[in-house]
């Protein structure tokens, strides 16, 4: 494999993906900003004042890391799935497929684009959160590494979704019926210690719970789960999903007849 060729190709693809995010900023940046502002106003401010504290933090403070992570996850996923499927649908994916760039480079370029959008939107939501509450970062390395890794997991998942998708409906099914429920049940708005023991066990089968809690630990220093378990699970997901993406792309699933 020609490394320098692939590095140029990856840089080109990332540049294209980031340009796309800014070109359609009304679709990519504005909606999460508005949605998260509403979350902070309604859940954090209006309802949160009645809830009081959770794990020793104001409710607004408690949900802020979860909402940041939620926006990172949905935007990383959404960017890759819509960009890659759009390229399939418009057939300009052929620009990449006829070129000598490797399948690994195609995955890395798209995933990096998704991560950059996820982190960018996450940063924007963080700034919005600061208008409503105070956030002091307890463990910066854990916060940053966990947000990057989680974003990578969902960018890879979005890539797989886009590979299998045949029509636009197929790229909204997973976010609507899988991603959103898992995110809401992943400890964004509550500590799982509030749940009966059985549902605590069920919740621990949700990978988003580990990401949200590890990120919250990085920001606030509190978590429902063991941080080491969170890293193990997230790294495992990155490895499995990247391998799956590569195998699917090598076999031409969804892109070559």
């Amino acid at each position: 494999m020609n490394l320098s060729l692939n590095l140029v190709a990856i840089r080109t693809l990332i540049h294209k993906e980031v340009s796309r995010v800014f070109r359609i900023w009304v679709q990519t940046i504005v909606p999460p900003a508005i949605t998260m502002t509403l979350y902070f106003i309604i859940f954090g401010n209006l309802i949160g004042r009645r809830i009081g504290t959770m794990d020793g933090f104001d409710y607004m403070q408690y949900i802020a890391p979860g909402l940041i992570m939620m926006s990172v996850i949905t935007n990383s996923y959404g960017n890759v799935v819509s960009s890659f499927f759009g390229a399939k649908f418009g057939r300009h994916i052929e620009e990449m497929l006829v070129s000598p760039m490797s399948n690994g480079a195609i995955i890395i370029g798209h995933v990096a684009g998704g991560v950059i959008r996820g982190l960018g939107v996450g940063l924007l939501v963080t700034v919005i959160a600061l208008f409503f509450t105070r956030l002091e970062v307890a463990h910066p390395f854990i916060m940053l590494s966990m947000v990057v890794l989680s974003s990578t997991v969902f960018a890879l998942a979005g890539f797989i979704n886009a590979l299998f998708a045949k029509k636009f409906d197929d790229i909204s099914i997973i976010p609507t019926f899988v991603l959103t429920p898992l995110t809401y049940l992943g400890g964004v708005f509550y500590s799982i210690s509030l749940l009966p023991e059985f549902w605590q066990g069920v919740s621990k089968a949700n990978p988003i719970l580990y990401m949200v809690n590890a990120f919250r630990y990085g920001v606030l220093g509190t978590s429902d789960i063991n941080i080491v378990h969170a890293y193990a699970i997230v790294l495992l997901f990155v490895a499995i999903l990247f391998t799956a993406c590569l195998m699917l792309l090598n076999r031409g699933v969804g892109i070559r007849e």
Binding site: V8, A9, L13, M101
Partner: peptide, 9 residues
Amino acid sequence: TQAGYYGLP
């Protein structure tokens, strides 16, 4: 962009 996919600086 196509030039970039072929590794052209």
